[in-house]
Design a protein around this nucleic acid. Structure first.
Lengths: 201, 201
DNA sequence: CCTACCGATCGGTAGG
DNA sequence: CCTACCGATCGGTAGG
């Protein structure tokens, strides 16, 4: 006879996290404070602490949700495409769309968190690293498939493809968030296409 | 009969700023607090406030110093080279060197500040934008010279070159700061070279 | 440049 | 989930 069912608890947690990730995308994962989030949700600080345990656990939960949203927006649409060049192209398309109209108003959350925590050792730093490595691994896997299928030159380095596509997306996000110039997104998309194009015409 | 000469005042201000920019490169420009900086410099908070007026003015001074350091490390060595392709190449070389061994331990300060302040309106946001625009303008000017000298294809868009080179540097900095993998730097350098290579072989 | 202090906010706990 | 509270720290001021 619990006062709230497991589903209700999960729902309230999910709603809390939605607000937290939106707030953190604007003011940063470290700038996110329990007090400010509580005020926005019109609840007490201790209520929030009860749901997550500590600020660090809240940060980890926010990061996990943001990573899910990224995969949902960028990877899942492309997963329907055949592996290799076709799927890589679909990933780039979805990625640019995601950068243009991100699910949280502060732009790509993973880029923000990466810059914010690259010099702060701890569990959040480790989690950011893990998410980024996993994503680069996906890109690398698709690049390898493209090479095997003869869609990329046989001497191509899959890690090189993964790094460069990711760097262009990160750079485009930073430029677009700062200057709000959509040309950054089309320029990044074209540069991605050149990375995936056969090196000789 | 001033107790401290203008030179002494300028020196103490410069030493304070050196410590501030080093600290801010690690914990961020917003995370930089007067109290923590004062403690590190073994002086009182009010002494620091007296030098800069407010935290925001301190942030602006730190940003200005960081921009000077960037230009000193990346632009000045290349300025000795002839304008156009040669100078762009020298800029890319110096840039990668700067990313590998940055003057402040937190990596490229401008990238950090850009991500941190892209959604925080105010004077610091405006200053970051101005620094970035100015730098992109330098890259664009050199790309234009390269086109005029026939070193880049005549239908090349100078803004496109500037954006892409910058995005690769930003992406490389983020990757290198997070994973400490120097291959990110050589990969970025190679991608920059492809951007500057004639599009057909 | 200092000490002493201001009100606000931080993350978190006690107790219910 | 709440109120009430803890010690620490925030940016900054008063007064010297």
């Amino acid at each position: 006879m619990a006062r709230r069912s497991a589903t209700q608890v999960a729902d309230s947690r999910a709603q809390t996290l939605d607000a937290a990730v939106e707030l953190a995308s604007v003011i940063g994962l470290e700038g996110l404070t329990i007090g400010r989030l509580a005020e926005q949700l019109e609840m007490s600080k201790s209520g929030l602490v009860g749901r997550f345990g500590s600020k660090e656990e809240l940060q980890l939960a926010v990061l996990e949700l943001a990573a899910d949203a990224f995969r949902h927006a960028v990877y899942e649409p492309a997963a329907a495409q055949p592996s290799g060049f076709t799927r890589l192209t679909a990933i780039c398309d979805a990625w640019i769309t995601y950068l243009r109209d991100p699910p949280f108003s502060g732009g790509c959350f993973l880029t923000t968190a990466s810059v914010e925590f690259d010099a702060r050792p701890g569990p959040v730093n480790a989690a950011v690293k893990a998410v980024m490595r996993r994503w680069l691994g996906v890109l690398e896997r698709e690049a390898t498939a493209a090479i095997e299928q003869g869609e990329l030159a046989p001497d191509t380095d899959p890690s090189d493809i993964a790094f460069t596509i990711n760097a262009l997306a990160v750079g485009a996000n930073c430029h677009y968030q700062l200057h709000h110039d959509p040309r950054a997104l089309t320029r990044a998309r074209h540069a991605m296409a050149r990375v995936l194009a056969p090196s000789s015409a």
